[in-house]
Design a protein around this nucleic acid. Sequence first.
DNA 1: TTGTAAGCGTTATCAT
DNA 2: ATGATAACGCTTACAA
Lengths: 343, 343
Amino acid sequence: MADVARLAGVAISTVSRALANPGRVNEKTRLKIDAAAKQLGYTPNAMARNLRVGKSNIIMIILPGSLYYGVSQIIPQVLQSINNALIQNGYHLMIANLDRDEMSERHILDLAFSGTVRGAIILSSKLPEVDGRSLANAGLSIVSMLLDMSEAGLPSVVTNDREAVREVTAELIRLGHRRFLYIAGPEGNYHDVERYAGTLEALRAAGLTEEAVTRSGGYLGYQEGFEIGVEAASDFARLPDKPTAVIATSDDMAVSFISRVQRMGFNIPGDLSVVSFDGSPVCEFSSPPLSTIEQPAEEMGQAAVGLLMERIDMTDKGMATRHVIPSRLIRRESFALVPSNSA
Amino acid sequence: MADVARLAGVAISTVSRALANPGRVNEKTRLKIDAAAKQLGYTPNAMARNLRVGKSNIIMIILPGSLYYGVSQIIPQVLQSINNALIQNGYHLMIANLDRDEMSERHILDLAFSGTVRGAIILSSKLPEVDGRSLANAGLSIVSMLLDMSEAGLPSVVTNDREAVREVTAELIRLGHRRFLYIAGPEGNYHDVERYAGTLEALRAAGLTEEAVTRSGGYLGYQEGFEIGVEAASDFARLPDKPTAVIATSDDMAVSFISRVQRMGFNIPGDLSVVSFDGSPVCEFSSPPLSTIEQPAEEMGQAAVGLLMERIDMTDKGMATRHVIPSRLIRRESFALVPSNSA
DNA sequence: TTGTAAGCGTTATCAT
DNA sequence: ATGATAACGCTTACAA
């Protein structure tokens, strides 16, 4: 910057102003400075700037360690939409992985307390906390995405899973289905709670009870949704009264489940209807094409960044809002009338 | 840091030393300082540190804009392995997207010239260059991954695609196949060149000519590999002499291709053997399970980071090395003897 | 409108 | 082994 100033024949501070607040400097001077900067191929040093203003322009996205649990299929879209939205606002995106170990928690806390990042978008239900340092008290702006953490004080971007699955279940009931298999991801988290609740609501509304549904999955030991689907297929094989409809809480689970039960000789959707969550592109090309409740990654990413930007400018951080994005069912062939021979 | 110094009763510079070079300070003093730091919940400011030492500890990964072109399925694994390897070395990972527009190039150049990042791992064949600023001259350490750019001076981590596809093609020939369909990604890039060359080499070694293979795909207009597979299925439908074996250059392409030709009534592998590239987890659960030439994301990520670390410490950047990671065929049912009724 | 100068939180040099 | 101090490159009062 000193070089640019010298070349343009002005003071350093004028260069700084010309580059950051072009309005607050004389037109002629500005042009001289721009020319000098371009000639020298000058780009302001971001670390110096951030140090001086006391804020970083980096946001971190905290991904749950087992990427392949649940929404793995849409992670690339999520990253892309968040990154684009951040760039629009002058921010950059850093990746942080939160595993079930203290090291990864510590790493994230360092990122926060060292001032490396200014804010975070978190896709996990756990806020890192080690040795008295907690992400909640790091002075960051944080927004949750996918999971509702508004009760923990974080603005959250979620989809209306409960409602969506309730409607889908109702439709399955309308198609004659009376016995369901529900394949759960990590038990007890927001997605599981909401989606299972939606399923039960639809059952009750139709005069059925929780006995109509068998739960599978819910273990925390698995790395990938695929494994859960495989396990669910074994569960299915053991059931004396076969369910005729399956609700899988991720596309991965549905894909591997279908693969296994087809191998056992069951026909989809002839013997068994299947619907899952996420809206992965691959569902369209599964055989049969898979019905899936879309998680609108693009919109969610944008919304999350929007909320984050609000939080960042906010002086008084009030209540945590909950931003619900409607998800829709993409209906494909995996979904049909109950088989006529079904009891 | 001043607070810690005061509490520990030492000078600021001693605190700095104690935290950064614990060896160069008296045992007792160090303990006092550590205690004070912990008591105050102190974490050193990264931006100040980086400014002072003149280096950032952030590495960016440059992803090609159309994420779903080619290797999209393994991007999450790639990110995870790179991030883990970087953390081991005290670095963080930032995401950058390189689209086919000037804005994204400019953005990446800013990241580089502003000193925000110290190095880059690039998964694209194009180095950003706008207005005289070029990524090649930004003073960064850069490593290429997936594509061989060693001739452009970048250490590169690649798989032995040519050899792998040559062997697979030879095996298909052994199984009796004589007519091939090759589904290309972006035409002319390293993957396309190598993989097609490997196919031809195997054909020639068996006394066949290039006429044995029909090329499909190769357009740059598509966003997703899936679309290319769909298009290839149309091409396939139009061919008078149907190929009996298909080599798809990504799993996405194979999945959508299979879905479409199955719908046309073709049986895999009865009528048609299929093999593809990438080793996406989903291939195992396709129907039929898909043979795929694995791209070992984990190893490649680690190797890329390894090369990058070498480059960073290197005073004299000599030749760009090429690091080849062997990929292997995961053989599954999509792959069989040529149909007996084939001409 | 522009210039002067202080200071952001570190590290590194040089004394002590 | 420790302490005082300058400097990294920028922004921002405040003064001119």
